[in-house]
Nucleic acid binder design. Sequence first.
DNA 1: CCTTGACTTGGAGTTAACTCCAAGTATCAA
DNA 2: TTGATACTTGGAGTTAACTCCAAGTCAAGG
Lengths: 130, 130
Amino acid sequence: MTIAEVSKKIGLSPDTLRYYERIGLIPRVNRNGSGIRNYTEEDCKWIEFIKCMRSAGVQVEALVEYVTLLQQGDETIEARKQILIEQREKLLSRIEEMERALERLSFKIKEYETKLIPAENKLKRLAHNL
Amino acid sequence: MTIAEVSKKIGLSPDTLRYYERIGLIPRVNRNGSGIRNYTEEDCKWIEFIKCMRSAGVQVEALVEYVTLLQQGDETIEARKQILIEQREKLLSRIEEMERALERLSFKIKEYETKLIPAENKLKRLAHNL
DNA sequence: CCTTGACTTGGAGTTAACTCCAAGTATCAA
DNA sequence: TTGATACTTGGAGTTAACTCCAAGTCAAGG
């Protein structure tokens, strides 16, 4: 598969795909005789996983570390697992944070719906400062 | 309350508090005779709300827009409500995205736990490229 | 009176993660 | 053969959201 095909299939720009490879987030992709990338199914699956992680906010750095360990063989299994566990923790607490915000948003929206004008309307007294 | 007190109480740096005020995320805080900020309880409540939204990833831009409308009075109530609803949608879909990632992470971790070495170990064949 | 320390402002610098660009090469249709 | 198109690389530019800094002011302690 060419970079354009992978880009379309997965939904990451060619620039992003090349960038990911440069920084080691994607293991080096094989090239044909004239240096053009030829992605395998395996590459695609990995890229798709990376996309999923990135869109959830997992940091590039953590993923690069994981790939690096992956390429060092079986002695790194435990370290890799730890990375995954750590990232899961981070995701979980991030989701909790978002759910707290969600609740507050919903509460405010409800205030607006009941025409009970919300508390921060008191801030209006500050309007003359603008 | 001084900026140092608010900073400590809420957990945002004085620099961030000044920055938020500069860009209009916090309505202008009153100053004493010598130009030093004197935060009210109201200010604090608002800042705390902003912190909650920001830590959930709500964009500064949307919050600034909300504050701006707030200071324009009651004709903007509907517009403000729409902003809140839009942000709630965004948060929801973001949470869903993260939960998908969470599931994949958990699945991978389980693979590691059962010593069923994970699929991407096939990527190891690329290790010689490094 | 002088220094210390907390504050003020406007503006420059930083970080993560892209995103774009220039210069060069290869392939392919006309 | 000659563009046009798609790719290559390394490096520069962009964006959001801070974070830091320099230069200045002011109140309080010694």
